[in-house]
Amino acid sequence: MLRIENLHAEIDGKPILRGLNLTIGKGEVHAIMGPNGSGKSTLSYLIAGRPGYTVTEGSITWNGKDLLALEPEERAGEGVFLAFQYPVEIPGVNNVYMLRAAVNGIRKYRGEAEISAVDFLNLVKTRTREIGLKESLLNRPVNQGFSGGEKKRNEVFQMSILEPSLAILDETDSGLDIDALRIVADGVNRLRSPDRAFMVVTHYQRLLDYIVPDHVHVLADGRIVKSGPRELALELEAKGYDWLLEDAA
């Protein structure tokens, strides 16, 4: 279970999150919606452990583990995965070599043996097919020269290889046409399981037609200002965010 309590965080002295509370249980899919600048990406980054933020108050725990005390790779070892809104292009670092280092890094953290070359290769092949990633992208430098859609697909591909127990999707729908969106959503839905929690961050409700959430939360001004069932997303689509912001103020 992901438990975020009274989270206050700032960057360069500027407060972004101001007392955020959120609980996501295993097997649940929660959507985080909200206007630009409300702190959605900050929340995603804080869970994954991106340096540069200062947590001034509050806590984030995953299955009882204090995530804020862990390095990013240790969080990955605990099952956390962040699909980036803007996947980073890394020249000179081969996509598959990176993934193998990731798989083995996670296994080592868990005290497991390294994956064999054959098993890894089979896993990569299977997932490549499932996600519809072009095979030619596998041995390219990470995300370099990928189209916007290919980058997002690569994020979901990586997620499907690493099989996280807590997957955070940060605006995975942005920059995707409808076909790509469907494929990405299929990839996510295939991973849905009673052991796995999802936090889906999106500005638009469109993605939620394909990845149907159990709960929808509205993040505004660094706090969750409203929570509800999936219908809340439709309401937001129709009415926008302003009515909630007025309520919150």
Binding site: A48, G49, R50, P51, E71, P72, E73, R75, A76, G77, V80, F81, L82, F84, P87, V88, I90, P91, G92, V93, Y97, M98, L99, A101, A102, V103, G105, I106, K108, Y109, P141, V142, Q158, L162
Partner: peptide, 25 residues
């Protein structure tokens, strides 16, 4: 780039090694 690799589970030392070699690859 360093954070991206580490967020995937690549240990910091290895992430640095990959990026350093990647610079000249």
């Amino acid at each position: 780039s360093l954070f991206y690799l580490r967020s995937r589970g690549v240990p910091a030392v290895e992430a640095r090694a990959l990026l350093i070699y990647g610079f000249v690859q």
